[in-house]
């Protein structure tokens, strides 16, 4: 009987301690999540980076298979390419100086400066492939949460595409939330309708696979299908004019009965997220103190 009572008391203590632990965990969830991410990512980074390292080692090793003549031909081709790129860079340098001069003449504000760094995707959730990934650049490279992640798509040859934003940063790696992540929230600008909207702003909007939700669009504007949606520049770190995607259509036009004061729609992302291996991170340069 006494043993039974002891067991019961032990169970009660166990339950109370677990309840307290759950409350503490819930209260400090966000802090714990960030701390845990940083610690584990800093620890696991060399191991996660192994496939990329193996790939580079194999690429380096494969160059030994070429004959001397083949290697010489490759070097001379690379030198020729380098000369072309060097002339292009010199021309761009001239244009930058000219642009600065013209801006100062017409008293336009200075262009916001960004440092661009390339990053390789090293980790992805196989079951949520398009919603996020981890890249091999972190706070040591100057990346902070909210840094825009850019990519390119041959279907849009002259446009820079927004693939996502940095969600969390460790020393050598960063977690990226793509435009297809339901938690991705920024403002978008529809160029032809000349109006702004919020991506994933309306929680009541239904999600569809491979489509981005956009809401709070003006009811007074006319929208054309496949018009481009760009970043608006309202966010502190994300420059304006980055292509997010093209408008597929509006969700519901019946504003009278739905009692909504705004329109919602769907945007097809421009970035090919299922076949993405490299991205570019645009780090805003720190402004000098006055």
């Amino acid at each position: 009987m006494a043993r039974k009572g002891k067991n019961l008391r032990r169970w009660n203590y166990g339950l109370i301690i677990s309840a307290i632990l759950i409350v503490i965990m819930a209260a400090s969830f966000q802090t714990l999540r960030r701390a845990w991410f940083r610690v584990t990512n800093n620890f696991f980074y060399p191991y996660i980076n192994v496939p990329a390292q193996i790939k580079y080692l194999a690429a380096d090793g494969s160059s030994r298979l070429y004959s001397k003549q083949e290697l010489t031909a490759k070097i001379s081709k690379l030198e020729a390419d380098n000369r072309v790129f060097a002339s292009k860079v010199a021309r761009l340098g001239e244009l930058v100086v000219e642009n600065e001069k013209l801006r100062s003449l017409v008293k336009l504000p200075k262009r916001s400066a960004y440092t661009y760094i390339a990053a390789e995707i090293i980790l992805r959730d196989p079951l949520r492939w398009k919603e996020g990934f981890v890249v091999n650049r972190g706070s040591d490279d100057g990346i902070i949460a909210g840094t825009p992640v850019l990519c390119f798509n041959p279907e849009y040859p002259d446009k820079v595409l927004l693939a996502g934003v940095v969600k969390d940063v460790a020393r050598h790696s960063a977690q990226i939330m793509t435009v297809l992540n339901p938690r991705f929230r920024i403002s978008g600008y529809l160029a032809e309708a000349k109006t702004h909207g919020i991506i994933n702003g309306d929680a009541s909007q239904n999600f569809r696979p491979d489509e981005i939700n956009i809401s709070f669009l003006s009811t007074r504007k006319k929208f054309t299908p496949s018009e481009n949606c760009f970043s608006s520049g309202f966010e502190h770190q994300i420059p304006r004019g980055l292509l997010i995607g093209s408008l597929i259509g509006l969700d519901s036009k019946n504003q009278i009965f739905s009692n909504k004061l705004y329109l919602s729609g769907k945007v097809l992302p421009a970035a090919q997220l299922d076949d993405l291996h490299f991205v570019v991170l645009a780090i805003p340069q720190k402004k000098k103190a006055l």
Binding site: F44, Y47, I48, V50, P51, I122, L123, D125, P126, L127
Partner: peptide, 13 residues
Amino acid sequence: FWLQLLFGSFALH
């Protein structure tokens, strides 16, 4: 854990 992450990076769960 490491192997699961590794295979996951190649879209293999």
